[in-house]
Design a protein around this nucleic acid. Sequence first.
DNA 1: CCTTGTGAAAGGGTTCACAGCA
DNA 2: TGCTGTGAACCCTTTCACAAGG
Lengths: 262, 262
Amino acid sequence: MATGRTHRPATRSRGIPEATVARLPLYLRALTALSERSVPTVSSEELATAAGVNSAKLRKDFSYLGSYGTRGVGYDVEYLVYQISRELGLTQDWPVVIVGIGNLGAALANYGGFASRGFRVAALIDADPAMAGKPVAGLPVRHTDELEAIISDNGVSIGVIATPAGAAQQVCDRLVAAGITSILNFAPTVLSVPDGVDVRKVDLSIELQILAFHEQRKAGEDAEQADRSGPARPGSAARPAAAAGRDGRKGPDGDVPAVMPA
Amino acid sequence: MATGRTHRPATRSRGIPEATVARLPLYLRALTALSERSVPTVSSEELATAAGVNSAKLRKDFSYLGSYGTRGVGYDVEYLVYQISRELGLTQDWPVVIVGIGNLGAALANYGGFASRGFRVAALIDADPAMAGKPVAGLPVRHTDELEAIISDNGVSIGVIATPAGAAQQVCDRLVAAGITSILNFAPTVLSVPDGVDVRKVDLSIELQILAFHEQRKAGEDAEQADRSGPARPGSAARPAAAAGRDGRKGPDGDVPAVMPA
DNA sequence: CCTTGTGAAAGGGTTCACAGCA
DNA sequence: TGCTGTGAACCCTTTCACAAGG
């Protein structure tokens, strides 16, 4: 990743594939529900259904953790809950700070599932002096000035950014400088961070746009709206926008050749 | 998918790969920023940096849309903005409903980026009669009873679920029955929907758990905490939890053989 | 017999590296 | 000359299908 060369194994975490890691929380949630209903064992088929995946994938996923099932029987619920929790690092608790206590930040602070498993909101931080001291979700909002102190005092390593886009990179830099190594970013910006810092992004508008794409596909297979004279092609002055037309690959429309009335 | 057989091409959307679709909004955002600064053209390298991807990936992505660049020069910003917007279906506007106006729902309703590009909040819906009529983000909250009417009257096809987990599937069913075909789900539940309905999930606690996993990896490479006597293995009564031990695959711990003091 | 665990095959996605073109 | 567009190689993920084992 650093050098781009191919001869160092790189990312040889020799561990669990990323795709599997991303599903473990899903399994854990389903298992927790079973545990609460005192169900002792589940088959891969049942658990997979509950988690919304298929059973082959689930079994393959679990095979990376070890052999925790019993052939002919299934998986012991309690045992698996524990093993997955441990694998995910949820047997210890993780203090997190939320920076940016606007509508979203407040909602996150109030979100129950937050505290559920191993996570504890150590502090809420906002740049607005008027917010300082105001209680949100039972915690007094602290001012940004205190950010570094809060992080080192509480040994926080996970930060949540819920600021406006414009402030996100700044906040991110300060978090990282203060020792944060994992960031969950709700601001619609690409954050740049040094190696060794993980960033995950939650972006409402991106999700909606992806849905819109598929929605359009469903609705528009035939009733495809034509170009509606968008911006013209660059280069040669007033060349009709359609110039792109046939270029070896399919046009921008799925089936129909591009029409694009200039 | 239906039959499991291999001889029907299936999912031959012949269109843009899903991974590419998921990145188009990123490119669009970066391009919009450039557009606002009146930058006329960008190279794949510059744009890729702004979007947080590498340039080869970006070029490949764009190649699925058509040949919209100019060799030796780069891409025309305005033109690309338009083409990507159109591809994503953002040239039309999409009315959306938000169901569940708690902390999160209200935050979503207030979220600016929501309305930014093609999306319009058609209604806020909540099951609590006490909420009905109360204005949130400038819109009066409507009661769940009106859900079907709101959706059909406004031709809504995208719904956002921000209810508690327990209510999500019910709400989902009603949305789907009312004609919704795309759902953005913020509730921590697996929704089951009929074919033809798209669901995307945004799950705070899953994201945090993934971060915790990596965080643990960073910190714990050596200071690995041992088993701490979790639930015992099932089956044979009090068999030490370590029984899993060596089973062909690596143990649950990264490097060290499983110790697991019973 | 039933269900796990897993090689092997198939399918996508990413990266490389360079031909093609302005 | 410089940057795009893209085949080909590579790598990661999913799925298949069956051997292994309680």
